[in-house]
Simulated scan of single mutants.
Amino acid sequence: MSSNPVDALIEPDGSDPVPDMLENAVGLSFLSPSFYIQQFCTSVIKSNPWDWAAEQLSGD
């Protein structure tokens, strides 16, 4: 057994543990018009309008 605590560390997993469908149902996202706008833009235009707006407004 090693006395160095760093040896016991493992790389964290970057996956989302909660499925998106469950998050949308629990958060009632299906009731929001912005949910459908985002779904439309993501599937048709292949761009997320909310990410684009945040990028434009936040600056560098």
Rank of each mutant, 00 (worst) to 15 (best):
S58K: 15
Q38D: 08
S47L: 07
A53V: 07
W52R: 11
S2T: 11
V18C: 05
D51P: 00
L22E: 09
P17G: 00
D7I: 05
M1G: 12
Q39I: 10
D7E: 11
G59L: 05
L9A: 09
A25E: 13
W50L: 07
S47I: 10
S32W: 01
E11G: 02
V18P: 01
D13R: 06
A53Y: 11
S58E: 15
S47P: 00
D16F: 10
G27N: 15
I45A: 10
E11H: 04
C41Q: 09
L57N: 11
E11D: 08
I45K: 05
L28M: 13
T42G: 10
G27W: 06
S58T: 14
T42K: 15
I45Y: 08
N48D: 14
F40I: 05
F35Y: 11
F40D: 04
D60C: 13
L22C: 04
L31E: 08
N48Y: 00
V6E: 08
D51W: 06
N24R: 14
A54M: 13
P49C: 00
M1T: 11
S15T: 04
S2N: 05
G59D: 05
S58R: 13
S34T: 14
A25R: 11
P12I: 01
F35I: 02
N48M: 02
D7Y: 10
S3V: 06
Q39E: 12
S29N: 14
L31M: 06
N24S: 15
D13T: 09
V26R: 13
L22Y: 01
M21I: 13
V26T: 11
C41F: 04
K46C: 04
I37L: 15
D60V: 10
E55W: 09
A54K: 13
S43F: 10
F40V: 05
W52E: 13
Q56Y: 07
G14C: 05
M1I: 09
V26Y: 09
A53F: 12
P33K: 04
S34L: 15
S2K: 02
Q38L: 06
M1Y: 07
G59S: 03
P19T: 00
F35G: 01
P19M: 00
Q56I: 06
Q56H: 05
